[in-house]
């Protein structure tokens, strides 16, 4: 017994180090492996998000013209869509409130108060939370294209997992050929401007600058939201697939506003997919 105590005394630094390291590594793995990690030890908790909010209040003044420009661009784009639609449909045929036309997607504006783009694990913090009706597994769209998916919600803030994080996966569609592919972001290969698309069949005709958009199949985003443009095409002869590098539509070093996308029909969609 005495020897044991002496041993512990001799190696107390090492033991204490191992104890703390064990705590740290269990934090690390619980964060890497479980999808919904605890709200209290992430940046959407009250104290850290308040600090980020102060920082945002200060430096948003310097970005006002940029925010203005992004919103004006989106406004122009939406107006163009709306005007074209009216001509196509004609007002008389569509009754508002008709049960044939269910509004599946709702959008809520949110300000990005912290965004990372330099790391292997990037995260985004937005200033809307559970009291605004935000839940996990909702999409987050920027003014030009998709940004990410809500993974963690506190009362007033939410964490978004952006496209530029290796955990983000989404199926995308090549507009010109209608081929489906899998969007991913690979550590060490992609930087914050690019992402990789796998599993495009080798016979699909893909050209540089072609647009990839969302499919809407996962129920997180509506279909036809822009994701990125092709900048590099490689062929994998063995798998008979193409590996495509795209340049993301959103510039992740310069995002200030976005919209949380809520799909009212998602639970129905998941139910159906379960039964398959």
């Amino acid at each position: 017994m005495r020897n044991l105590i002496l041993l512990i005394q001799k190696y107390r630094n090492l033991l204490f180090f191992l104890f703390l390291e064990f705590i740290a590594i269990s934090f690390l793995f619980s964060w890497k492996n479980t999808y919904h990690h605890s709200t209290y030890i992430s940046s959407s908790n009250f104290i850290t998000s308040t600090v980020w909010n102060w920082k945002n209040k200060i430096d948003s003044y310097f970005n006002l013209s940029e925010i203005n420009k992004q919103l004006a661009d989106e406004n122009a784009f939406l107006k163009e869509m709306l005007l074209n639609k009216e001509i196509l449909l004609g007002k008389n045929f569509v009754k508002s409130g008709d049960s044939l036309f269910v509004k599946a997607f709702k959008f809520q504006e949110a300000t990005i108060i912290q965004s990372q783009f330099k790391f292997s694990e990037n995260h985004i913090l937005i200033n809307k939370g559970s009291i605004n009706g935000i839940e996990t597994e909702m999409g987050f769209k920027g003014t030009k294209g998709i940004i990410g998916r809500v993974v963690n919600v506190s009362a007033h803030y939410a964490n978004v997992l952006p496209v530029i994080n290796a955990d983000f996966k989404l199926s995308v569609i090549h507009n010109a050929s209608n081929s489906w592919g899998d969007l991913s972001w690979e550590k060490g290969i992609n930087d914050y401007r690019t992402a990789t698309i796998n599993n495009i069949p080798i016979y699909a005709k893909v050209n540089l600058n072609d647009l990839f958009t969302t499919t809407g199949s996962d129920g997180i985003f509506p279909s036809q939201i822009p994701v990125g443009k092709v900048v590099k095409i490689e062929k994998d002869q063995e798998a008979q697939k193409k590996v495509i590098t795209i340049e993301l539509i959103e510039d992740f070093s310069n995002i200030h506003v976005g919209f949380v996308v809520k799909n009212n029909l998602r639970s129905e969609m998941i139910e159906i997919q379960k039964n398959e």
């Binding site: 740290a24 590594i25 934090f27 964060w31 030890i41 992430s42 940046s43 600090v51 694990e121």
Partner: peptide, 8 residues
Amino acid sequence: DVFRNTIG
């Protein structure tokens, strides 16, 4: 870690 959201 808390500020960068990379706990551990």
